[in-house]
Design a protein around this nucleic acid. Structure first.
Length: 557
RNA sequence: GGGCCGUUAGCUCAGGUGGUAGAGCAUCUCCCUUUUAAGGAGAGGGUCGCUGGUUCGAGUCCAGCACGGCUCACCA
């Protein structure tokens, strides 16, 4: 009965609002209803008023209802386009006005409406495929009243298909002169503001789809990231590697020093860990004579989040039989130069305001680097023996700490529990790392820091391991693989002792891995390359979150 | 967890020394058949992050909290 007293418009509004209320729980909706409530209006007046005035979202639901009333499907299944926007632009961009007029090229195109400019009984708009835009000219006498009514109900963000012919406007812009419009999907929530775009960092990460719609450079970042991975696959495929996938859920998380995430398998009632590295599985494949394998996938580490750390990160890890770490140094340099060449077309990248050349590489042993980068202002410069005797290392550390305290730099721990190798490692990280802007390979690490690497033939205190630094970031980590099962077992045992002492990151005994080694593993070298950090370098991104589509965030409140 | 910065309309942002909130874009109505940050006329839209305090009066001052960013510490 009530309906008799309502105008048709009010009925539509009510229906639209019912739909809106059922499918929507946004702040704006709640706010507008609360606001209406507070004005003490009747239900119908409330609904009419709150829509009629302000609720942008309800406004759009209302338009969708009207579009349905015009006989359009709200969510049609497909659109039969003749060209992508990219095709139109690449094919016809150079056609003159006369050529276009002569040929009357008929097209059907589709995309998201990104700009609308009304003009009385005509209108200009742009549709986009995300990267490319094309202008549409819609005029009443060309599309007819029904289409033009639909045109009036469109919002920025809607998807449409347009049929028409190509022409050039007064300002010489290639444009589709519409003869028919097909509604494809509605954008019920308004897009970010057209001029300033989306700058709120949190929304950019949480609602990356908006970021991708609006910020062109963001799309570019992920294009580069994709190219990096593709080029890496090409590179390793050409070298005869095969790509494999190993377990992401492991009964024991090994292959790195890090704390894992824990999960549980219900049917088997067993705890599992998300992998911190694929290393031990990939080396089992080397035992199984896959000989050259690589895997590109996620690792998970239950640690802090920073501009350089996301809980899940992507790593390329590869193993090459019959080779040692020297081979991988060369391979790494070749790979990086090739990536730069193919993706950037040049060897120079700008990173964090500084110029990096991927053409000039340095190689230092860890100890050499310490001697080389020891600050001038903290004399005397250490000699090699200062790095090799425990007591002298302690003295050196104390000297560093005094210097560091005066210059607001990081200090290193000095106590009897720390081994010689750990002290060397700590000194390296604090003294040297911050200087490693240009590509630098640091090699020959203390054995204490590397439970899975092979010792150097002429120095059992060192292992054949190197790390690649670029832009002060650790980009890659590689070593000659330890393939002596008994030695590996002893290393695990000594790690187990560290675990007992409370080191949660110490490696656990992996008996099956030792068993695999006992069947015989050829000499081999392996390496992990951090894809996210490489992507940061190649896209001049200061935060790892800028190169991960959906970086880890706290739960939305 | 520590330090620094931030939170005002759907979006991007203004709001000396306390006096009850503003612009552009977006939205709505009207005009406009080659515009492009279209234009013109008009209208609506805000518990100024939350809680408490000082004050006659708080967007503004103070305290606490929440959320976010950057940064430092472990790690790749």
């Amino acid at each position: 009965m009530l309906f008799e007293f309502q105008t048709p418009r009010a009925v539509i509004i009510n229906e639209a609002l019912e739909v809106a209320r059922k499918s929507l729980s946004t702040e704006s909706w709640i706010v507008s209803v609360k606001r209406a409530n507070s004005r003490g209006m009747t239900r119908d007046a409330r609904l009419t008023e709150s829509t009629h005035d302000q609720d942008l979202v309800a406004q759009r639901y209302l338009k969708l209802e009207k579009i349905k009333e015009l006989g359009h499907s709200a969510y049609p299944h497909r659109y039969d386009f003749t060209h992508t926007l990219r095709q139109i632009l690449s094919r016809y961009q150079n056609y003159s006005r006369e050529q276009l007029d002569a040929e009357k090229i008929h097209v059907r195109i589709c995309g998201r409406l990104v700009a609308l400019r009304g003009h009385g009984k005509a209108g200009f708009s742009h549709i986009s495929d995300g990267d490319n835009r094309l202008q549409i000219y819609t005029r009443l006498d060309a599309v007819g009243p029904k289409n033009f009514e639909l045109y009036g109900l469109l919002d920025i963000g809607d998807f449409i298909g347009v049929e028409g012919f190509l022409f050039r406007t007064k300002t010489n812009e290639l444009t589709v002169h519409a003869s028919n419009i097909k509604f494809l999907a509605k954008s019920l929530l308004p897009l970010p503001e057209k001029w300033h775009g989306l700058t709120d960092v949190e929304i950019r990460y949480r609602q990356r789809y908006l970021d991708l719609m609006v910020n062109k450079d963001v799309r570019e970042v992920f294009m580069v990231r994709s190219k990096i991975i593709r080029e890496m696959r090409n590179f390793f495929d050409e070298l005869g590697y095969i790509e494999v996938e190993t377990p992401m859920m492991q009964p024991m998380a090994g292959g790195a020093t890090a704390r894992p995430f824990k999960t549980h398998h219900n049917a088997l009632d067993m705890d599992l860990y998300l992998r911190i590295a694929p290393e031990l599985y990939l080396k089992r494949l080397i035992v199984g004579q896959l000989e050259r394998v690589y895997e590109i996938n996620r690792n998970f580490r239950n640690e802090g989040i920073s501009t350089q750390h996301n809980p899940e990160f992507t790593m390329l890890e590869f193993y090459q039989s019959y080779s040692d770490y020297r081979d991988l140094m060369d391979l790494t340099e070749t790979l990086m130069k090739r990536l730069a060449e193919r993706i950037l077309g040049k060897m120079e990248v700008e990173f964090d305001g500084e110029k990096i050349s991927l053409a000039s590489w340095s190689r230092y042993s860890l100890k050499e680097a310490l001697l080389k980068y020891w600050p001038e202002e903290c004399p005397p410069r250490p000699e090699i023996k200062d790095l090799e005797e425990f007591a002298r290392l302690q003295q050196l550390s104390i000297r560093w700490n005094a210097y560091a305290a005066a210059h607001a730099l990081e200090t290193v721990p000095v106590n009897q529990d720390v081994s010689r190798g750990e002290m060397q490692g700590a000194l390296f990280e604090t003294v040297v790392e911050r200087f490693l802007l240009q590509p630098t390979l640091i090699y020959d690490y203390p054995i204490e820091l590397s439970p899975l690497s092979k010792t150097k033939a002429d120095d059992p205190a060192l292992v054949e391991r190197f790390e690649l630094y670029i832009g002060r970031m650790e980009i890659a980590n590689a070593y000659s693989e330890l393939n002596d099962p008994e030695e590996q077992k002893r290393r695990f045992e000594s790690q187990a002792a560290e675990w007992e002492k409370g080191d949660e990151e110490a490696h656990q005994m992996d008996s099956d891995y030792v068993r695999a080694l006992r069947y015989g593993m050829p000499p081999a070298a392996g390496e992990g390359i951090g894809i996210d950090r490489l992507a940061m370098l190649f896209t001049n991104s200061r935060s790892i979150r800028d190169v991960i589509l959906f970086p880890h965030m706290r739960p939305e409140k």
